[in-house]
Amino acid sequence: MESINYQNFRIDAENICVDYNGKVALYDANLRLKPGQICGLVGMNGAGKTTFFNALTGFVNISKGKIRINGESVRSAQKDQTIAYVPQNEGIDSQFPISVWDVVMMGRYGSMNIFRCPRESDVQAVKDAIERVDLTDHLSTPIGNLSGGQRKRTFLARAIAQRASILLLDEPFSGVDIRTEKLISELFIQFKNEGKTILLSTHDMIHVREFCDLVLLINKTVVAYGETSEVFTPENITTTFGGISPDFLFGPES
């Protein structure tokens, strides 16, 4: 990790603004992440967490500022399959007639030909990814028949199959069983060792302390950003959540 040039950030977002038809969703937001870093994105509902993700993936256009992914534009990051997005369980149609295998294969679409015919290597990548999330017994199970945790793992497998170096995870721990939670935390350690960069949004403050090297507190703009041990203070959290005391949010021991 030391050999990496300090200027070569995986994610470098500078003063970005996003507005939807004149309504500001995010302004003057900055974020810099290096390979192997895990950063927690914390904020209220509507604070701009999803908007931040959308800006990084290019799903929405930024009205101001600059985003560099590995020193390049978002467009070329898309072409290079650099970023994988793992949606919230609520963000997907669980009744869609599609199997675990097909979902994970979608992680390979970006690097396939126009007909999306899987090559030997794609099949192997999908197999490996499904094995890593422990869903080999459910290859052809429709996603509608999976538990919340299994579905979450399916989408994680898609990100693994994509071989992305940046993972964006929207509420990875919400609505999952203990087994899945354990598996996800193990995967995070592996991802970190592989030098992947992870940005995850979460409501659970304990997870932030447990996994995140860095934390980005936002409320339409950056409230605080830095090492979790320094920045994740009751004062900052209170500011982020609009004056509500962190005691109220996650117990007095914080």
């Binding site: 072409k79 399959q81 994988a84 997907i92 979608m106 992680g107 126009i114």
Partner: peptide, 22 residues
């Protein structure tokens, strides 16, 4: 027929489609 799979992805998860450059 040509865009069968892309359209399925578009209906299912347009955000992922966009993220991988489709």
């Amino acid at each position: 027929s040509i865009f069968r799979k892309d359209l399925m992805l578009y209906c299912f998860d347009p955000r992922h489609a966009k993220t991988v450059g489709i």
